[in-house]
Design a protein around this nucleic acid. Structure first.
Length: 456
DNA sequence: GCATGATCATGC
DNA sequence: GCATGATCATGC
């Protein structure tokens, strides 16, 4: 006996909304035997609150109402803000079926047209039954978002058609990702129709950044500035639309750009060049750009020397030694960062001036990600073995065993703190010095790699 | 001159 | 006080 009409969206939503501010234990604890208390949240929700057995049908969970049920965790940041913890994994990509589909008759669209989202507050010490449900609502894709998602879907399809399913990577797309699903061990690779190369199993997913703006939008606490119009999106790629904004400013000095835009920025500010880029895109320095937030596009301003060399490496936030040793590459925070899309804006030094030269969209390809994985694994191993310090010079400079620039074409480890004494604790003490903490470090992208992009 | 390690400076 | 982008210093 159901407490709602499974053919009616309104009825399902009304019933689902009753979960807000409660836990599953509050709502259906009596239906659960002790044995089942440890199931994952989504399974318990389907079986004990909505009363159906979890399935892997290609149709939406509530078929007649065309509604797919999805639950997803929120995690608490240090600044007190709750954000989505993970991407939202949707249906598995069938490499053999997808080439024969159009977007609007695709299995993706049939299943995920309307999603009933259940956001719950994940906390490390709690079991699924005790997570507090924060927000329940139906998400319909706004038409502009849908255009972008459709482009993303088309891109995945075209890669499969080209026999490049094995080269798919999350950075290829904007809102809808093709994330790995299940074991990424070689033996669990899938066949693809237009190449003999086995490919990792993948699923469509809403990127974490996109899901996060869904959450904020449904909560009603977000203000984003859109820079793309729906008309633009009909005939253009997102990359082209954005690059076109920059071209009128090519070859102008930073001062000339300010004059042309009729703005005055603090030249000494460390985000001076990124502010210039934002103003060129037509938004204020402090505004969040809707499309950049949803797709987590990272703007990187790069200085090019007069001789065409790039000296600066690109840094990422320093990592915690205690945390990185517990991470797997596939779920690591650094992988999530580097597989995003980058917008490189190149400023070239010229006779004492600095001119905007060009801008390029970029994302690491699957080979680059494999390379990054090696750097990640070596870093992890170095920490795990307590094998960090190599030697200490008489001036006190500490040589370490972390991956160096010369070891990879792509990435290396460098210090990134206030000074040498700005440290994080180590999971095991260093063999050589017995120290239990070490100078903060972070992953960097090699300047030589950025130089290759610049010259491409 | 370059790779690696260390630190500065701004802004939130 | 800290994160982040930028730059300096050391040593091979």
């Amino acid at each position: 006996m159901l407490n709602f009409n499974p053919s009616s969206k309104t009825s399902i939503l009304e019933y689902a909304k009753k979960l807000e501010n409660f836990t599953l234990n509050d709502k259906c604890g009596e239906l659960l035997t002790n044995k089942k208390n440890k199931g994952n949240f989504g399974t318990l929700l389907e079986e004990f609150y909505f009363g159906y057995k979890p399935n892997s049908n290609s149709e939406a969970d509530f078929k007649n109402a065309e509604l797919e049920l999805k639950s997803t965790p929120l995690k608490l940041l240090k600044n007190g803000e709750w954000v989505c913890k993970e991407r939202l994994v949707l249906n598995i990509i069938n490499y053999f079926d997808l080439p024969n589909e159009d977007f609007f008759n695709s299995s993706f669209w049939k299943k995920n047209k309307n999603i009933l989202l259940v956001f719950y507050l994940w906390e490390v010490h709690k079991i699924s039954l005790d997570y507090i449900i924060d927000l329940v609502d139906i998400w319909n894709f706004p038409s502009k978002d849908l255009k972008i998602i459709q482009k993303d879907w088309n891109l995945v399809q075209s890669k499969i058609n080209k026999g490049e399913a094995h080269l798919l990577s999350e950075g290829d797309t904007f809102y809808l990702g093709a994330c790995t699903k299940g074991s990424t061990a070689k033996k669990s690779y899938r066949k693809q129709p237009f190449s003999n190369e086995p490919a990792k199993q993948r699923a469509f997913s809403l990127k974490r950044s996109y899901l996060n703006t869904i959450y904020k939008t449904l909560k009603g606490n977000t203000k984003l500035e859109s820079i793309l119009s729906e008309e633009d999106l009909v005939s253009n790629s997102i990359e082209n639309i954005i690059i076109k904004r920059f071209t009128p400013f090519y070859n102008l000095t930073d001062i000339e750009i300010q004059n042309k835009l009729n703005i005055e920025l603090n030249r000494k500010s460390k985000n001076y060049f990124s502010s210039i880029s934002k103003r060129i895109l037509g938004v204020g320095e402090k505004d969040f750009i809707e499309e950049f937030e949803k797709a987590n596009i990272l703007i990187k301003s790069i200085k090019v020397e007069e001789n065409g060399k790039i000296k600066e490496n690109i840094s990422f936030p320093s990592f915690k030694f205690n945390e990185i040793v517990k991470e797997d590459w596939e779920n690591s925070s650094i992988k999530e960062l580097v597989e995003n899309k980058f917008l490189f804006v190149f400023f070239k030094k010229e006779k004492g001036n600095i001119k905007l030269e060009k801008s390029i969209f970029w994302n690491l390809n699957s080979k680059d990600l494999d390379e990054f994985e090696k750097v990640f694994e070596k870093t992890k191993l170095t920490i795990k073995q307590g094998n960090i310090v190599k030697e200490i010079s008489n001036k006190g400079i500490v040589r370490n065993n972390f991956p160096k620039t010369s070891e990879s074409y792509l990435s290396h480890i460098r210090p990134h703190g206030r000074n040498r004494n700005d440290t994080y604790p180590l999971p095991i003490s260093d063999k050589k010095t017995n120290k239990t903490e070490f100078t903060k470090q972070s992953f960097w992208i090699n300047s030589s790699y950025v130089e290759r992009i610049y010259k491409s």
